[in-house]
Design a protein around this nucleic acid. Structure first.
Lengths: 160, 160
DNA sequence: AAAGATTGAGTTGTCAATCTTA
DNA sequence: TAAGATTGACAACTCAATCTTT
């Protein structure tokens, strides 16, 4: 694991408990490996859209605000995101008759189809990535990220 | 490590070698733990700006394009980023007299001062995060992220 | 007033096209 | 022509202000 690429640079080497954390994560996300644009056949969806479809496939009549919380996004972001999915005919929005403040989301038939195909594509992609890891590395990644998520969530809760 | 927060949701629990990878990373980055806005006293800089200052503190007369590569950003992004730093009087840009295609960057006196203070702040922040991890978790995080970076870089190189 | 959704303005990125210098 | 930098158009966020219901 010496110097396999020259422009991943000082990151992957040793000096970790340093400021480099962000750089690494930022680069990981940007690298394109995990990001954006899923084009399966004619379908296209951003990462957040893909994740949204995934959630909607699981639970119907989700309130828009709940979806936002699931995705870890602002309600405003999700408002526009869902508007896009609706425009494509993948999602239907109806005000909840019991409490008209809520907007209930569900997938259309076309939306379910799209969600399944795009979801499968995302899954393959990630599987391909994870297949590049040794079992030990995969274990380490899981443990490490889970722990990091915990610490961030905690620090978020208490003394920002 | 059961259910410490209710809205970190299905992520932190078991089902990892799944599509959840992006969600986790995305959330980590967004959570604010590693992101954005460093305000130390009167100073303010975005994460990328902070990282840029950090690099410039290390090596003077860096070409703008080199900086872009170090940061893993597009040259266009860095162009605007550096313009901002220059406007704040932290960086000076001069065309290289030997080859006027290059723009050479260096910190001003004020820039060095700012870089040091902001850098220290970032360091503290991350240290606080990492202090929340057990030694095992830290080791796991390092191994896991390093491996992930490798895999992404590889897949990037060859068959996209 | 307060909860949910939307809208507007600003930030940080990207990619593609152009300008400049060699 | 090609390498380096800039500019323009667009995407996906955020936060703050507003509109709509309760």
């Amino acid at each position: 694991v010496a110097g396999r690429r020259e422009h991943v640079e000082p990151l992957a080497d040793g000096a970790f408990p340093d400021d480099v954390l962000s750089a690494l994560l930022g680069r990981l996300v940007r690298s394109g490996g995990l990001r954006e644009a899923h084009d399966h056949a004619d379908l296209h969806a951003s990462l957040s859209e893909t994740l949204a479809l995934r959630h909607l496939l699981g639970s119907s009549d989700l309130a828009q605000g709940e979806l936002a919380e699931c995705l870890g996004l602002e309600k405003s972001t999700v408002s526009r995101l869902v508007a896009g999915l609706e425009r494509r005919g993948w999602v239907s929005r109806r005000r909840d008759p019991e409490n008209r403040r809520f907007i209930r989301l569900s997938l259309t038939i076309a939306g379910e189809e799209a969600a399944r195909r795009i979801g499968a594509h995302l899954h393959e992609q990630h599987q391909a990535l994870l297949d590049g890891l040794t079992p030990d590395e995969l274990r380490a990644l899981t443990v490490g990220l889970t722990a990091l998520a915990r610490v961030i969530a905690d620090g978020h809760r208490s003394g920002e």
